[in-house]
Design a protein around this nucleic acid. Structure first.
Lengths: 149, 149
DNA sequence: TATTGTTATACTCTATAACTATA
DNA sequence: TATAGTTATAGAGTATAACAATA
């Protein structure tokens, strides 16, 4: 067959699928896609959920702490925090010991939203994890942590 | 302690770390970060490597097949293909049976680059996977595939 | 009528520099 | 001098609509 006449019937992805990074990215995108759909009812993107979840479990957390924990650059967090404050889901209070910083807290409606959103997240996790056994799910998370921690 | 005076000593991330999506995303980002550093010597981003790797193992693959396989939208692939062609790493040849399509092939210098780049990728994989045992690495990839396939 | 490849374009995400107020 | 928060802005990544050529 001449060089110019070759074509591909079925794409061979076996090499890419042997790479950890490729598989981790594909799995992350698959989970995030479901996440996006289910969280749309709360008008929360994954990053909004992560921020609100950290505020939920760390009342008084500062912007700086959110940035460090989630790997967000400070200029990019400002807009998110402003939007969440405008929606009256969070409020900023003066930090007790650092006049430069503001402690971030959930409002009552923020608390209600996050109770619902975290319940939805739990359902979503259970659903995605249903493709695995309970033991496999625990192993998977443990191994992922070994990779990035 | 009054409401306004609370603050966070150490951020509690245990809830987020219980979520599969959060862990998969963090692991993917960690691997991709190393990938970016090591592939910089070839001036290849992860997506360029993925494209060239598919062309390597599927000579004559079309743009449409690349898009479908990698989840890239056609308008966003055009620039990448043009850039790789300008660097003389790939070339477009007429498709043998479809006058609309072009088959994509590696040039000799593209073949040389990919031999080196895939060797580097293998070293990188071994290094990231060194945080896990060989068995754990195989299990991790198997479980990740169960999540997204 | 549907598909491949393409252009133009808009939107989101991420990154850098520089400023202010406070430590 | 260093840090928390902010503004402005640039760049990369991702999205939709519409078109020409071919099936």
């Amino acid at each position: 067959m001449p060089k110019s006449a070759s074509s591909v019937e079925k794409v061979d992805t076996s090499y890419l699928e042997s790479l950890l990074g490729y598989n981790a990215r594909r799995a992350a995108l698959a989970v995030i896609e479901v996440f996006l759909q289910r969280m749309a009812q709360y008008d929360l993107r994954p990053v909004d959920f992560s921020v609100l979840s950290l505020v939920t479990h760390n009342p008084g957390i500062t912007s700086r702490q959110l940035c460090t924990t989630l790997g967000i650059l400070p200029p990019n967090l400002v807009g998110m925090i402003n939007a969440l404050e405008k929606r009256e889901l969070i409020e900023r209070r003066p930090h007790p010991r650092d006049g430069r910083a503001m402690g971030i807290h959930l409002t009552p409606s923020g608390e209600k939203l996050m109770r619902d959103a975290e319940r939805t997240a739990a359902e979503l996790e259970a659903e995605v994890a249903s493709r695995l056994t309970a033991a496999e799910g625990r192993i998977l998370i443990r191994l992922l942590k070994k990779v990035y921690l």
